[in-house]
Write a protein that binds this DNA or RNA. Structure first.
Lengths: 296, 296
DNA sequence: CACATCCATAACCGAAGGTTATACATACTG
DNA sequence: CAGTATGTATAACCTTCGGTTATGGATGTG
């Protein structure tokens, strides 16, 4: 009488999308597989969760009930994973820190060094998160803390310490016509296709396609990527241009990509983020202290 | 990164038993299968949950953390199932009522009839529960309410209405020497082997082997059964005798089984039980009202 | 009326998850 | 100290499950 939580996750996706096909896409799953999963869940619970129609999947009464209750189950599991992760951290003297792209840039190493000074015998394990996971593995207990760029979804559910800001620039293929200019104005780029993060990343995605700063002009999306390497490849392939932190020019220098300064966009903010209440005097607190020591 | 809750359930069993072999037994699983499950869970979480030794399995730090967090996850799932069940009940006009053995005896039909009078168009589905499930499917959302005999484990986590009591008698094989007596004294039966319910049923099991009423004399267990039919078969086979409600003589009359009155044991109490707070004015409340109308 | 959309079904395939039998290490016991 | 009991790990095997692609059928839509 137990479920695989994956079924619950799938159910939640279908309930949210109201559509099998799109939900399947979001879950990186084929549509027939999702059909099977939902059917399996319905069989397990002994009741229909959706009414099928040609316009999509609509929740039934029991379906509504499950949709309301499912987040609590998934949340409890996430909490369990965080607890296990925390215990493992303390038992093995390893702090796991997530990051997207270049973490805290040049400050990363000094921060880690300062932490090791406070906690001799501890190690720091850096772990790259996918943009597909909006909060970088923080709520799943994959990592104890993460270097994140603000804003990101559900940001206020976490504690964070802002470390620094840096200007943003434009990344484009080296042979892109715009690469001829030494400096760009963002208002000249409104019609260019942009490489974007997945939709699920909400405010993060919006920030990096500057959704707010284009005076209502819609964004053209050239490609959607989840990892720095894919992102670089898409840019180099000419699928579009992208906003990037200035430091990308140093950490992701490639012969087929050009980075140019741009005016008219706000800088990017890097912060250290951790789950609410997790830094109570332990090793994580020391890492936070080490990081903030290098904050601007 | 999602688990099958079965793994969590298995983990909890191993954590509680401190022993793979016994936990496997309790889960009706082979020991190698459990080994695999635990290993799989450890792999999923990326940390060791137990330290293996020849004396059993001891929890590690992360293991302790998971053991502390697992009940919340399983509880959330149970709550979800109950919510779905409640919605399904209201959507389909079917009230599902669990029972062990003979439910409310001869009062069962009148209760249902009275309920249908209050709720025309509704049906009542009776569903037998296994003694292996101490609370008769109540917390898993299998049923909306259940006819239970008191006491049963975690009884005070539920709401209940006592319906009636009835004397208990002794059931034994028809050719058992004691069957010659028209009436028995319990103090003469202390050395007889008894057919018992599974250990997991705690107070319920104790009540039916009269663990408290034998002056410290240990019980001999002749067999452990989970269902009335198995119970009857064990008795008929001569594996032991058993305490039974008087009504069993009517509802479970068999040529190979004799029921005899016994003195020196308290009567059995039948109650209607339902999850706390579930009877808020709905159909379940009407069923409770119908049942209590036939209470003593 | 053609077309796009969306869910269901079929056929297929590899991996997962269970079983029994057995090995191996340690602790207890006569 | 040998022998036995207890406890977990491994091996070999088999069935079921969960995923894939390809295709069908029903229903709104331009």
């Amino acid at each position: 009488m137990d479920v695989d939580l994956r079924l619950l996750r799938s159910f939640a996706a279908v309930a949210a999308e109201g559509n099998l096909t799109r939900a399947a896409e979001r879950l990186y799953l084929s549509q027939p597989a999702l059909t099977k999963q939902i059917r399996q869940l319905e069989h397990l619970l002994g009741t229909a969760l959706f009414t099928r129609s040609k316009t999509g999947m609509a929740l039934t009464g029991p379906g509504e009930a499950l949709a309301a209750a499912a987040p609590a189950v998934l949340g409890a599991w996430d909490a369990a994973r965080r607890a296990v992760r925390a215990a493992d951290r303390d038992a093995s003297n390893v702090l796991r820190v997530g990051y997207l792209a270049s973490a805290a840039n040049e400050r990363t190493r000094p921060i880690i060094a300062a932490f090791r000074e406070r906690r001799p015998g501890w190690r720091v394990e850096l772990r790259q998160a996918s943009w597909g996971d909006p909060v970088g593995g923080l709520d799943s207990g994959d990592v104890d803390a993460a270097f994140m760029r603000l804003p990101f979804p559900r940001q206020d559910e976490f504690e964070l310490a802002v470390l620094f800001t840096e200007p943003r620039c434009i990344a484009m293929a080296a042979d892109h016509p715009l690469a001829g200019h030494a400096e760009l104005r963002f208002e000249d780029l409104l019609d260019e296709p942009f490489i974007a993060a997945p939709k699920a990343t909400g405010a993060f995605r919006d920030h990096w396609i500057e959704a707010e700063g284009r005076g209502g002009r819609p964004v053209r999306i050239g490609a959607v990527t989840e990892l720095p390497d894919d992102w670089l490849s898409a840019i180099a392939a000419g699928d579009g241009i992208a906003l990037a932190p200035e430091s990308a020019a140093r950490f992701y220098a490639r012969p087929d990509i050009a980075y140019r300064p741009v005016t008219g966009v706000a800088p990017s903010t890097v912060a250290l983020v951790w789950p609410r209440g997790a830094a109570g005097g332990g090793a994580l607190a020391d890492f936070v202290a080490a990081a903030t020591a290098f904050a601007d």
